[in-house]
């Protein structure tokens, strides 16, 4: 029951975040919203794992968290440099 209530709460926040992503006036709103939505997905999967008693799903949640992070870093890097690759001889590379 508690897990179901948690799922309902996370579902409501997912809806709010999705509205922000779809309406979001600037690109940064959308990036943050999509990153948050990924975090909510991790939470949903973790809650589902405990609700169904299948705790091996937690590995899946961890993988999602990693993918979400990599995706956000890639997007922000694209916004900063306009390209995903960086030359090895550029001196001001602080994002490694």
């Amino acid at each position: 029951m508690m897990y179901a209530a948690g799922l309902a709460g996370v579902g409501v926040t997912m809806l709010l975040v999705l509205i922000r992503v779809l309406l979001g006036p600037t690109v940064y709103d959308r990036i943050l919203g999509i990153n948050l939505f990924g975090t909510k997905t991790v939470l949903v999967i973790a809650l589902l794992a405990f609700l169904n008693g299948r705790t091996d799903y937690l590995d899946l949640a961890l993988t999602y968290a990693l993918i979400n992070f990599i995706g956000t870093v890639a997007v922000l890097k694209f916004m900063q440099y306009g390209d995903l690759g960086w030359a090895g001889d550029v001196e001001d590379d602080s994002d490694v």
């Binding site: 999967i45 091996d56 999602y64 997007v75």
Partner: peptide, 23 residues
């Protein structure tokens, strides 16, 4: 933003697969 939203779409369908017990 469309490229980022495709990622969100994919995350959503992945959650659907999880709900259907196909991890």
């Amino acid at each position: 933003p469309v490229a980022m939203l495709t990622g969100l779409f994919s995350l959503l369908s992945a959650s659907l697969f999880t709900v259907l017990s196909a991890p």
